[in-house]
Design a protein around this nucleic acid. Structure first.
Lengths: 329, 329
DNA sequence: ATTAAATGTGTAATCGGTTACATGGTGTGA
DNA sequence: TCACACCATGTAACCGATTACACATTTAAT
């Protein structure tokens, strides 16, 4: 790999001049600039980002922490972030926590040690505060944490909406899968849902779950139908769990949506492809990623006067695990 | 952030001694070591990986290139890699190509500029050779490229196996979804399948596809049933495509597996959760990731005498989109 | 014509580590 | 007692960039 010295020698100038050309900084004579650019091309020189980062104490890297890359919701977030930051010349490092939260600390440390310019995290457990004394800006995505910058949806409203749609379509004995207790977002959905059900005076039961993972979801699904075989409406904590529940329901011979209605949460790509296609509360994951990235870049650039807590809309996506509202309205 | 100098001052020694403690190198008196370790803890000092990497020309980062993180097969690979390399103290940087292959070059450059210690790639298009003059070792995963180190499955055998299972279970008019032409793996599956069908003297048609993405998959699915409405057996290029096909088939009221059998490829986590659960040819993604990581680490450590091209087994996973073999045997 | 401001370029310090080399003390065998 | 290996530690060069500062040369303003 050619270094800046090689380029300087080749162009017959000093390294400072090469650096000026590279960074479009200070004064460089047009003729000199041409010489340098030619030398750069001849040697196909690429600046060493490590050296650059050492001096500047900033890299072009942005760190992203995800709870579980196997849950399709999170890659979708990542894609939004990626598209946004690449336009600005940044690069994404993804750290997968795998729902093992001690890993979170390790990744944060690695990010810091590698001078990341900013961090976007979708992993913070409620009540933890190891993000407080970081030198780089942090954006919380799909999470909120004190008054830190964040991009999120209104989970309470989402839960309420799901419950309301289910009730509107005639479910009488609803079962809620309550997501992991440590996750504020999951609790918000849950609280929104039960508030709605109580005010509508509808009977409901609750199944507690402790993760969003594919492999665990099947267990909750089985438990659900053992405990509440006559449930006629289910609010799943997310689409992955909903897929597992639907699978189990069909296996047991239940008719969806006639005997049993089901609403998920997230609207991951596969939800459309399930059969019947899953009705769900959509979180605009890709756009949330984009917004988080924009927010982070503003923080990095030390801009002022912009909204630091961005709430994105949830939306009921009516597919075929819920009945038509006219039928029962 | 405390630096090595701060630690040295605190402990009353030189930076060289601190470095020796840090790296467990050279001679350090036991008493001195204790002093240094104490200073490190007091200042909660973490070495700056950037500075380290600049001097050593090696970081603790390993780069991973994926064609599309939204396809659940790839996160699964990533998880396998991650688990393996983290034990060795490495960190994963994921670059998502999003099936936009010029991005591949950009990421490779970023990886090089950041001194990654090694690269694992699942993205290489056939015939490209921009991996030849890299300074870091490269492992091809789910791909092969000349005689470069690689971890892959026998796609030809996989295609053959899928076709054979379908025929064995009585499909007579088979349609094959042929994956992207540039992807050797997809072509291998295709070639294996048609070889098997020809030798079994079974009639088949082909639908050409150009990506593995969720959003495109639905289009191929529609096209398939328009062109070949009476097909009774489908070989999908992967599980995502299979999910889309199944969805469309059920929408059209076809009975699966009675009227139509379907076999996917990959065995992604969701395949089990589809209804009916998808029969598929399993690629052991997690283990492939692990093997690729092990292979890369061997290359990094310049070990010798180990297998550089690792072929992993494919396996037919019989679920419920195929009939029982006894019924038709 | 005189001087200040603007332009162009190079030298060297710096970022935070690692390590080659120098130096000095201690232990051991001849 | 001498020589030499071993131990312990420090000084300084180095990795490859950026940039403060110095200096020289133009250009513009008075």
């Amino acid at each position: 790999m050619a270094t800046i010295k090689d380029v300087a020698k080749q162009a017959g100038v000093s390294v400072a001049t090469v650096s000026r050309v590279l960074n479009d900084n200070g004064y460089v004579h047009e003729d000199t600039r041409k010489l340098v650019i030619e030398a750069i091309q001849q040697l196909s020189y690429k600046p060493n980002e490590v050296a650059r980062s050492l001096f500047k104490k900033k890299s072009r890297l942005i760190g992203l922490l995800l709870p579980d890359i196997r849950n399709p919701f999170f890659p979708e977030l990542a894609r939004g972030i990626e598209d946004e930051i690449q336009e600005q010349g940044y690069q994404l490092i993804i750290g997968n926590i795998d729902e093992k939260y001690p890993k979170e600390m390790d990744y944060i440390q690695t990010f810091e040690q590698n001078n990341v310019t900013g961090i976007i995290t979708a992993t913070n457990l409620t009540g933890r505060s190891h993000y407080d004394d970081l030198s780089s800006p942090v954006v919380f995505l799909d999470r909120t944490f004190n008054d830190h910058p964040s991009v999120f949806v209104d989970g309470i409203e989402g839960g309420r909406m799901a419950a309301s749609e289910l009730v509107k379509r005639g479910s009488k004995r609803i079962t809620i899968l309550k997501g992991p207790a440590q996750l504020q977002t999951a609790q918000d959905r849950f609280n929104g849902a039960i508030a709605e059900l109580r005010s509508a005076n509808v009977d409901f039961s609750v199944i507690e779950t402790s993760s969003f993972s594919f492999s665990d979801a099947e267990i909750w699904a089985e438990e659900l139908f053992e405990k509440y075989p006559d449930t006629d409406g289910i609010l799943a904590s997310n689409d992955v769990v909903a897929a597992a529940v639907m699978h189990e329901a069909l296996r047991l011979g239940k008719a969806i949506p006639e005997d049993l209605q089901l609403i998920g949460f997230d609207d991951i790509p596969l939800s459309r492809l399930l059969f019947p296609p899953l009705s769900t509360i959509r979180q605009p994951a890709y756009d949330m990623g984009k917004e988080a990235a924009k927010l982070l870049i503003r923080l990095i650039n030390k801009e002022t006067h912009f909204e630091k807590n961005i709430q994105m809309p949830v939306m009921f996506i009516e597919r075929q695990t819920t009945r038509k509202v006219e039928e029962n309205g």
